[in-house]
């Protein structure tokens, strides 16, 4: 069961920023929240400390941040078409990556931390060399904004991209070739329209891909065979709620393996936020509903970041909650 431990960031009434993401650092100690053109870094071990504020050179707000796997750097993607790589503790700005021709929406490091992938509203995915800041490859295989990128945590050979054109594509990171496309083909046949993808997450072994689309559906795909193996749906009683039907863009998913379970095997949960500030957790294997977390904010959940048993959640107006898994 997830228990609320703290709320490091509260929405301030005079603040008219919208928040897009929160990211836990790989060691689980820090969280990074972009606020406009600056970054706020909170130390979770010391709640009383004021956040460290890092100013960036971006001229427009930051839409995504990503920690490097060694936890020393943050990459920021901005609406001004650029990406910055900042060394958090010591060296400051390392690179400004220029090349995209539209706002940059999503970022993802590979597990070695030597490559950075970025997806943009210019419909392309670029691969950057972190050492010299040069663009190594541009892949244009989508026909709308690329909004989510993910790589398996132990395997740098593949990358998955999700786009507003409704496609999820898997690419070979070494060649840039498309290896497979997972689509909602059957769904489109009945609904008659394309459903944009909003977020992706690989399973730990990289064999499965969790996909969330704008209609709020959460599906787990078997990447190798290209079939859906689990579909997570709202409970019937929640389904009748009016708000469930008008799912907005305020959705996020996280995929975690809880370590503190009483069973011998690790529990794998699928977590999904909705547009009314409510988070739902399911058991991945049985699809059993486990927990409903209400943030209390009637505001869309923008992102969920999960490492081990810790969960960081942010709503659009900037309320950031930290939850920890506890066995009851």
């Amino acid at each position: 069961m997830y228990k609320l431990v703290s709320t490091p960031h509260l929405p301030s009434p005079d603040n008219n920023h919208t928040y897009s993401t929160v990211q836990i650092s790989p060691n689980g100690q820090f969280i990074a929240i972009p606020q406009g053109k600056q970054l706020q870094i909170y130390d979770l071990n010391n709640e009383l400390l004021k956040p460290k504020i890092i100013q960036t050179n971006h001229t427009l707000p930051i839409s995504d941040v990503c920690w490097s796997p060694d936890g020393e750097c943050l990459a920021t993607a901005s609406d001004d078409h650029t990406i910055e790589i900042l060394h958090v503790t010591k060296y400051g700005l390392l690179h400004i990556l220029k090349g995209h021709t539209g706002p940059v929406i999503t970022l993802c490091y590979n597990s070695k931390g030597n490559l950075l992938f970025s997806g943009s509203m210019d419909e392309s995915v670029k691969t950057w060399d972190v050492f010299n800041g040069k663009c190594l490859r541009t892949v244009s295989a989508h026909s709308d904004s690329v909004v989510s990128l993910t790589l398996p945590c132990h395997d740098d050979s593949v990358m998955a991209s999700g786009s507003y054109d409704g496609l999820v594509r898997i690419f070979d990171t070494q060649t840039g070739h498309c290896l497979s496309t997972l689509t909602y083909d059957k769904d489109w046949k009945h609904s008659g329209r394309v459903i944009p993808i909003t977020q992706l997450e690989f399973s730990q072994n990289g064999k499965f891909l969790l996909v969330k689309s704008l209609d709020g559906a959460v599906k787990l795909w078997d990447c190798i065979r290209g079939v859906v193996v689990r579909t997570f749906v709202q409970r019937e009683q929640d389904k009748n709620n009016e708000w469930w039907k008008k799912f907005s863009g305020g959705i996020a998913i996280a995929y975690i393996s809880a370590e503190k379970t009483s069973q011998e095997k690790n529990d794998v949960l699928v977590i999904s936020g909705d547009s009314q500030g409510v988070i739902t957790c399911w058991d991945t294997h049985t699809k059993r509903f486990l927990q409903k977390i209400d943030t209390g904010q009637r505001n869309p959940i923008m992102n969920i970041s999960s490492i081990g048993g810790t969960l960081a959640v942010i709503t659009r107006d900037g309320c950031c909650n930290i939850y920890r898994w506890e066995e009851n």
Binding site: S203, N205, V227, V229, T231
Partner: peptide
Amino acid sequence: ENKIILTKEEDTPIDLITMD
């Protein structure tokens, strides 16, 4: 038929952690 295939898929055990 699709539904039957789907339900079958949804019941097969999956392993998200172990690497080959």
